[in-house]
Design a protein around this nucleic acid. Structure first.
Lengths: 206, 206
DNA sequence: GGGCGATTTTGCGTGGCACGCATATTTGCG
DNA sequence: CGCAAATATGCGTGCCACGCAAAATCGCCC
């Protein structure tokens, strides 16, 4: 029942988010005014603030939407799959299909990658990005509670799992962006991170 | 070598942070203007922005300073102590001593607790708070790398450990604040959280 | 297929914020 | 004691978030 109305709304939201990202990546965060973003999408500046309460929130919105999909993906995994396997797969799905893979493009557009990196360094954005992650994490915790039969209100367990899983993805992504030279495939990094976390992160035996 | 100069600077910083917190807790976030905070400390509004680039940052600054102390505490732990034991103790220290325990006061001042809760619910603050946590987490990761002889540049391990440990503390604190009815002692919650994480968060055997 | 009610967009106005720049004041140190 | 460096302040500017009310839009039901 996705009415045309809500669909158009979602489209505008996405368009504003992408416009904010593109403009910021190519010009720098504070050389972009809200007015510019609105204009790029063909909408009034006031309308921008009907969708987002700040420039930063607009940029982080794409990240938020993707993260939320991880929680949804977990709910789709077969119920008899072991928890950590299901989590790993749910996370992997977000990076191996869908048109949004564009968001973190493969190397080649050095310009673009550099722009994104500069963007992510912006303090104002980091906060909003982390907030998006926190929102998605709450959703993930709910899904974990459901799957494991634990209780969000009384058990720390589901939140701990969600937090650890989110951290695994975040660290893998950071690692991927940092060591862009010969980039290890993101799938392997994510798998590795989950494996280590699920093993309790024992001190390396050297 | 703490010159009088830097000491006074640190004092002003802390005073501004506390003033921001107190005013916000009792009046609500957007009934406090930067001007009010500056006035409460006896400093010009412009000076406020020499210390912090936003109201939110000022409020989060106390949280940041405390979190940074966890990393410092880890470096102080005996080198032969197992990693996870050391992490647990380093985290616990921040809640069992020092004058900053005031920050999250024991029940009794319902007014104050309610104010703090409302404050933490403010979106603008959550971002800044999480950013502070991220900064501290980076510091913690460095300490972990040092202790375990791993390499921040090539291994995900230290960052994963730091992220997991931060998450453990954060979840414990959240649990503590949420279930204020008969509050389980924060020390037990933290210990529990660390134990579960260090065990790899196995699915509960039901 | 046409009008109606709900939703969405827009313009305008307001209060406040972040910060650059120039100036005055303080402070440590020789 | 006096100077150089650090810090505090005043002022001005551009931008932003958002409340409010008017106008446009659109799905839907008769």
């Amino acid at each position: 029942m996705t009415g045309l109305r809500e669909r158009k709304k979602a489209e505008t939201r996405a368009a504003l988010g992408w416009a904010a990202i593109h403009l910021t990546a190519e010009r720098g965060y504070d050389n972009v005014r809200v007015e510019d973003i609105a204009e790029a999408v063909g909408v009034s500046p006031r309308t921008f603030n009907n969708y987002f309460s700040s420039k930063a929130e607009a940029i982080a919105s794409r990240h938020l939407d993707r993260s939320l999909r991880t929680a949804a993906a977990l709910r789709e995994r077969p119920a008899d799959e072991p928890l950590w396997a299901a989590l790993t797969q749910a996370a992997l799905e977000q990076f191996t299909r869908g048109p949004e893979v564009e968001a973190m493009p493969s190397p080649g557009h050095a310009q673009w990658v550099a722009g994104v990196r500069t963007m992510l360094a912006e303090p104002a954005l980091q906060g909003e990005r982390l907030r998006a992650a926190a929102i998605a994490e709450a959703e993930l915790a709910a899904a974990v509670a459901e799957r494991t039969g634990t209780d969000l209100a009384t058990d720390m367990y589901p939140r701990l799992v969600a937090a650890a899983a989110s951290a695994a993805v975040a660290v893998a992504m950071q690692h991927y962006l940092d060591s862009a030279d010969p980039p290890a495939p993101i799938e392997r990094l994510i798998t590795d991170a989950f494996t280590q976390v699920a093993a309790g992160l024992p001190a390396p035996s050297h």
